[in-house]
Simulated assay, not measured.
Amino acid sequence: MKRNIFVLFLFAITSCKNESSLPDPLEAGWEGNAVCEVLEDNSNLRVLKCTFEPGVGHEKHYHNPHFGYTLQGSKFRITDYKGTREVNVPTGYSFKKDSISTHEVLNIGDSTAVFLIMEYK
């Protein structure tokens, strides 16, 4: 029993370390190019504007808890803990994560997508 708890503990530490070694959304880019810019950064909130032309993605990265809003939508291939799937992200769509999350995305649509990401501090 103690061994199982120890193994579970090691797995949890390793998982956290792997996620924290990923870049955040501002640091992550696509093929060496930035896709996000800082619009606001204060003691309570960081707001990013992320732009993805067709064929441009966002390399695997983590997000702190955040709220997001789609200024301009497109079709994306998303890979996260659920696997890989294709989704249409409509203009005006909002989303929220209350915990740290990781994913990578690729704009497979024919229009440029633009998102606002508001990260809580």
Rank of each mutant, 00 (worst) to 15 (best):
M1S: 14
K2M: 15
R3Y: 14
I5T: 07
I5G: 00
F6R: 14
V7E: 13
V7N: 13
F9I: 15
F11P: 01
A12K: 09
I13K: 00
I13L: 09
T14C: 08
S15D: 11
S15G: 07
C16H: 12
N18A: 13
S21W: 02
L22Q: 13
L22N: 12
P23R: 10
D24C: 10
P25C: 09
P25R: 12
E27V: 11
E27C: 07
E27T: 14
G29T: 12
G29W: 04
G32A: 10
G32Q: 14
A34S: 15
A34F: 10
C36S: 02
C36P: 03
E37C: 05
V38F: 09
V38N: 08
L39T: 08
E40M: 10
E40V: 15
E40D: 07
D41L: 14
N42Q: 05
N42R: 06
S43T: 09
S43M: 08
S43D: 14
N44V: 13
L45I: 12
R46T: 04
V47Q: 02
L48R: 00
K49E: 11
C50N: 02
T51A: 00
E53A: 15
E53N: 07
G55F: 05
V56H: 01
V56F: 00
H58T: 13
K60Q: 15
K60L: 12
H61A: 05
H63V: 12
P65Q: 06
P65M: 07
H66E: 04
F67H: 06
F67T: 06
G68N: 04
G68S: 07
G68K: 05
Y69S: 06
T70V: 12
T70N: 01
G73M: 02
K75D: 01
I78N: 02
D80K: 12
D80W: 06
Y81Q: 15
K82F: 02
G83V: 14
T84F: 14
T84P: 05
T84M: 09
R85K: 13
E86L: 09
E86T: 07
N88C: 06
N88E: 11
N88M: 08
V89S: 05
P90K: 02
P90V: 01
P90E: 10
T91W: 08
G92R: 09
S94D: 07
S94R: 08
F95N: 09
K96E: 06
D98Q: 09
S99P: 00
S101Q: 08
H103A: 12
H103S: 14
H103C: 10
V105L: 03
N107M: 04
N107R: 04
N107A: 07
G109P: 02
D110A: 08
S111K: 15
T112E: 11
V114T: 11
F115I: 10
F115S: 02
L116R: 00
M118S: 06
M118G: 00
M118W: 00
E119M: 12
E119C: 07
E119K: 02
Y120M: 11
K121A: 09
